[in-house]
Amino acid sequence: MVLHKGETFEHVYINEPAIDLHIVQEADSHVKIHIINLQDSEGQSEVTNLIHIDHADTGCMTEIYALACAGADDKISTRTRVHHDKGEGVSRQLIKFVLRDRAQGSFEGELKIRQDAQHVDAQQLNRNLVLTPTALMRTKPQLEIYADDVKASHGASTGQLDESALFYMRQRGIDEPTARRMLIGAFLKDVLDTIADEQQREALMDAIDRIV
């Protein structure tokens, strides 16, 4: 789809089995999307998310927030392609996975800033919690930057729940499952905080509490 000059496209995708979205942004347009995958199924489900954004003109803004919680034998794969073809654009990507059981997560993030796309400000951050030894996360950030006057940052980290925080909470009388839920909620908080609708945010928080 083409997002015309100055337009805004905003959407929260919740538990879609597959997203394949290609948006060509014209000047000063704004994309803000959330992709929420909360898998509480037994067995196996497969989810693929593909988001392709082109900044075809100057002054575009793109925000991509993705949050995935998976368990059992789920597979969730999220690919983003953000192409800054023209300058003065801003992109923000925050992608988080929480994996338990034998779930597999994968993130591939292609961020390209072409030569004449000056003064771009691009951020990509992928953080993952792997709660069991049998869960698996693959992450592949790819940055291609051909312009010389840009700000671009990226980060990817995968880890476990903070054991010292867990013990601290238990020492105060909080039982272990509750402490784990609180820490997972804290990990996902910054993604949820970007959802403007408070009711929706709280409903998602409750849904996360139920499955983790």
């Binding site: 909470m169 020492q171 105060r172 909080i174 609180m182 820490l183």
Partner: peptide
């Protein structure tokens, strides 16, 4: 604790209320 643990994203109110009520 000798080294009290930092817990980003968990507010002091939420933490303390959970601990006290449990």
């Amino acid at each position: 604790f000798q080294y009290p643990v930092e817990i980003p994203g968990v507010s002091m109110v939420n933490f303390m209320r959970t601990a006290l009520n449990e």
